[in-house]
Design a protein around this nucleic acid. Structure first.
Lengths: 248, 248
DNA sequence: GCACGTATTTGACGTAGATCAAGCAAGAAT
DNA sequence: ATTCTTGCTTGATCTACGTCAAATACGTGC
């Protein structure tokens, strides 16, 4: 995940990666101009909170580099991750005033933000953007529902395998790697954060990763660097009934 | 939940309840006219499938009466509910061709449908509708994320209490009941369907309902009719940290 | 090199909830 | 009336995962 200062996440983009990734692939030049005018960058240190649940949120935007998480916490400290934000992912809820979840930078994060009010005004005028937002929200809803199946019905081993395949897939689409042969990627989260993602404890996460390694489903170099010799095997372990259109 | 043939879900509505509940509270008369032209009703028998995951879906619409569920099923039969559709709830994914989940009528269901193509064309012309759709999708996303906390981190007892409070809340807002005093409602699902909602087995659901009854948190008349003498007590049991704006 | 803090692994043990297996209640069919 | 069916409850076990605790690995600064 060493995107560090990656200025560009796709071949075709200009200086701001989100222009088409997250917000608008089909905007007219004058619309892009408007977007540029209300755009600014912010950086957050690893471990810092970008927003607290309930805070007034005066921007929307997307992640340029680094990793952030959306989490919910109960009074007694139990926490569940409900969103994982990798580079190019969108943050914010047009039309909503407050943040619904804690947003935390788990690595150093660069965000590309738009002031919310003018962004919403732009939305009204440009159906492109409104349409794209709906599409993105539907994608997130689909992801949330897959996630619900994982949380509600999968075993610990299946959860880990699912997580690895999700990360591998996102990593591959992000980096346009050669899709043949072994998949190689770095885990973007600590064992504890993975546990919060999967509804497990960090010990169980660690044990299941060890088990998958022992069984030859994955190889590990260090703690974070993962090699998947056979992606189909991993998908089997995940209990997924489709290959998910890796190359779609 | 005996809405049976309820022609109207709010005080102000006309013959089609979804006009403002689900699609548009602020449409102009000519826009409503257009909606009327592409509108039709369908009924489904209890237990029948409205759509299978992967099927081409040529309509969007909303539930007029009855109860339907969205579910995902793994190859070995484990199933997880990912959506519960009560009267006034919207179904369908504008801009998507296929259904992503199985949609099943758990009681007799009446749906008010719009043909998808013309509905999407209407969306382009009427920002009201597009905006309302985004809002509804964001609501669903919020619900999904609450649900994820429930599935990932709550105990069986908390899951049941959460479910009861969700149903009580929805029922109250649907029926505009007196909010003071004991809450009274019917469970819209079998124990098995509740189990699929909560990521439990039906036996555990049954046991925990019995336990809540024994502890005086709820009373039962028959199997489905529930009385909640103290809603705050129920919310405590659910592990929720807010009252959720019952009367908001 | 050495002390210190954080991330991770591994082990021993306990428990919440699953599984397997009977019963029971109430409506529908004969 | 009596059998069936479907939904629900309850009991007896089993086990996957959580909990508690200790050891190891990997920096990072001195």
């Amino acid at each position: 995940m060493n995107q560090s200062s990656a200025p560009c996440l796709t071949q075709e983009c200009g200086d701001c990666p989100i222009r088409h990734r997250a917000v608008c692939a089909r905007c007219e030049p004058d619309e892009l101009q408007l977007l540029d005018e209300i755009k600014y960058y912010r950086t957050y240190e690893a471990g810092s909170h970008i927003i607290w649940a309930g805070d007034r949120m005066d921007f929307v935007g997307s992640v340029v580099s680094g990793i952030a998480t959306l989490t919910q916490t109960m009074e007694d400290g139990r926490t569940q991750m409900v969103g994982l934000l990798l580079p190019s992912d969108f943050v914010g809820r047009p039309g909503r005033d407050g943040a619904a979840y804690d947003v935390t930078a788990t690595t150093d994060v660069v965000m590309c933000c738009f002031r919310k009010k003018p962004f919403e005004q732009l939305m009204v005028r440009t159906p492109h953007v409104a349409h794209r937002l709906l599409e993105m929200t539907l994608d997130e809803l689909d992801a949330a529902r897959e996630w619900m199946l994982l949380l509600g019905r999968k075993t610990a081993r299946e959860k880990i395998a699912s997580f690895l395949s999700i990360i591998a897939r996102r990593d591959a689409s992000l980096n346009l790697r050669a899709a043949k042969g072994a998949l190689v990627f770095d885990l973007p989260l600590t064992r504890e954060a993975m546990a919060d993602y999967l509804g497990l404890t960090l010990e169980t996460v660690s044990r299941q990763i060890s088990a998958l390694r022992k069984d030859g489903v994955i190889e590990l170099e260090g703690k974070r660097h993962v090699i998947v010799p056979d992606f189909d095997r991993l998908l089997e372990e995940a209990g997924d009934d489709s290959d998910g259109g890796m190359l779609a």
